[in-house]
Design a protein around this nucleic acid. Structure first.
Lengths: 349, 349
DNA sequence: CTGTTAGCGCATTCAT
DNA sequence: ATGAATGCGCTAACAG
């Protein structure tokens, strides 16, 4: 490994001069610089990043910790966010440090990464109630940004970007009720997820908009996973066969629900409508009848990183809390015309 | 930021003793150790990872560079591999450094990351012909592993894990010809991708198995992207309407082809059969009629990382080149019975 | 058992 | 315009 010292010896100048020549300082003879640059090229010099980091107490790296559940590593929302943050970081000359941890040792990872000065800032992925990660980073006075607000009854006194999922779910409900649906189920994530109340609120608003009454049994909490959606859908269809539509809070759950439906020899979008949330790449074509709400994940990632870099550089943010609008994506083949009439049963309460 | 020096002052011992007490060395008075540990806890000491890395000339980090094409950041294959490598790394106490780069400055990134000693090893994602990344890493004598063999006419003299895609495509062809298909198109990636010849070979074998002749016009090269698959499918269906099946070399292309088909008001799996390759999570349910070959990406990621760590620790590998078997995933609803008879046209050559 | 010394590779004073 | 000295925070070799 070739270092400054080697260039110094080869060129006859001191380490200091070599360092400054390469760094582009003006107080070095132009001829000397050329000489040194040539030697550096010739010897294939690459500055040791770790030494630089130690010296500068800056890493030019941002960290993100993947919530690694049991079976799968993370959902598509997370990996999509990861890639968009990584891309944005690369554009700004930052690298991305990824650590996968189960919820158990998650805080250890934060302490190690953040306390160990491995990164200049952190991206937190999915806000939770009384989020320990946020509490820790705030106490440590370490730069961070968050994807997703706090729950409505907590204070979102941290920089975040979020999509207005309450509005998104309400739109979905409006769409479904407009198609004649009256018995609509909702698959919610566990309560510890901060966005859960927003989506429930959107659901209730949507029912209200259509003059439908809220029925608690139609709302289920389960994992934000495929199997979570699958189990929940089976439970619903076992006990409430009158249901004609299922609204899932992320694509993975929607896919699970679709799977359950197909297993029962029913047709998605015909016998029963399914909608998702997120609409990441693959799910975009997941099913020709899957209407979803699209979260601008790419934009969220990009803007999160820009925000984070401003915080790192202590540039005051003009807008530390951003609520982006989602987008309702209605699949052509999911229109009212193709909805089986008999699938829409009248309310009898 | 609290460091060893602070603990030393507070405890009255020297920095060295503190360091060794915390590191668990046996030559430290047990009482002293307890004292020091208590103070460390109390002051919230976290070792500076960067300093350690510099000192140890080890980073406990593996790197992976994302091929960031124009629009999208990477395909699902890559992000799936990324997550599985990251997960495996976490289990072994390694972090993952991700950098997104366009093909243009890709080599710069390698020089910076590898030459700059930021990682102990690298994972290379999709082998290319005369792969500059491999050449560089080998010349630098830096530990690395590769997902995917070299092209058949080059030597795969590096540690890799690959799925036998030739066999996979052959299986697909057998499946399709078994259903009566005789005019089968193939969507191939560009020639610079190392696996292209393998898949073409599998295709030709499959045709041969059924006694069908190869027709060059049915084989198209395009991007491993959705739009690539879409354009190729349109081109095929415009010019060769007699085609009854399209085999795509990754899921993204398959999804693009499905999109093209639906746009033309044809039905996937009924008017025309489509098969993909990769079968990552979302695509698992992408379309009830999408038969695919499943690559064991999770296993590939896991094993790649294990291999890499052995190389880093200079443990000789007993099997540096691994070829895993893929798996043919036939969707129930894609069976012969549901194939429209008229969609299968007889050969006339 | 504990402390002193040295150095990982670099960038920045402060001299000259 | 250049060089010597210093230290980022840590660990290890070598005394005692």
């Amino acid at each position: 490994m070739v270092k400054l010292k080697d260039l110094a010896e080869k060129s006859g100048f001191s380490i200091t001069t070599v360092s400054r020549a390469l760094a582009g300082y003006k107080d070095v003879n132009e001829h000397t610089r050329q000489q040194i640059i040539e030697i550096a090229l010739e010897m294939g010099y690459q500055p040791n990043m770790v030494a630089r980091q130690l010296r500068a107490r800056k890493t030019h790296t941002v960290g993100i910790i993947a919530p690694s559940a049991s079976g799968r590593f993370a959902d598509d929302y997370f990996s999509e966010l990861l890639m968009s943050v990584g891309h944005a970081a690369a554009q700004r000359g930052y690298d991305l440090l990824v650590t996968a941890k189960t919820t158990a040792d998650e805080m250890d990872a934060y302490r190690r990464i953040v306390g160990g000065n491995r990164v200049d800032g952190m991206v937190i992925a999915r806000t939770r109630r009384r989020d320990a990660r946020i509490a820790y980073l705030r106490a440590a006075r370490h730069p961070f940004v968050v994807s997703g607000r706090a729950a409505p009854d907590e204070e979102s006194d941290f920089p975040y970007i979020d999509a207005d999922s309450q509005l998104g779910i309400r739109w979905i409900l409006n769409h479904l009720t407009g198609l004649g649906h009256q018995r609509i189920a909702l698959l919610l994530p566990p309560d510890r997820v901060a966005f859960t109340p927003y989506r429930l609120a959107g659901y209730r608003q949507g029912l209200e908009d259509a003059g439908l009454s809220y029925r608690e049994a139609y709302v289920l909490n389960s994992d934000l996973s495929r199997s979570g959606g699958q189990q929940a859908a089976h439970h619903l269809l076992d006990n409430y066969p009158e249901i004609t539509a299922i609204v899932a809070c992320n694509d993975l759950m929607a896919i699970g629900a679709m799977n359950a439906i197909q297993t029962r020899n029913m047709r998605v979008g015909q016998d029963i409508a399914v909608t998702g949330f997120d609409d990441i790449t693959a799910a975009d074509f997941a099913h020709p009848r899957l209407t979803t709400v699209r979260q601008p994940i790419k934009e969220i990632g990009q803007r999160l990183l820009e925000m984070l870099i401003q915080i790192i550089h202590q540039i005051p943010l003009e807008q530390p809390q951003v609520l982006l609008s989602p987008e309702l994506v209605i699949r052509e083949s999911c229109g009212a015309g193709q909805q089986r009439k008999e699938a829409v049963s009248p309310v009898r309460e």
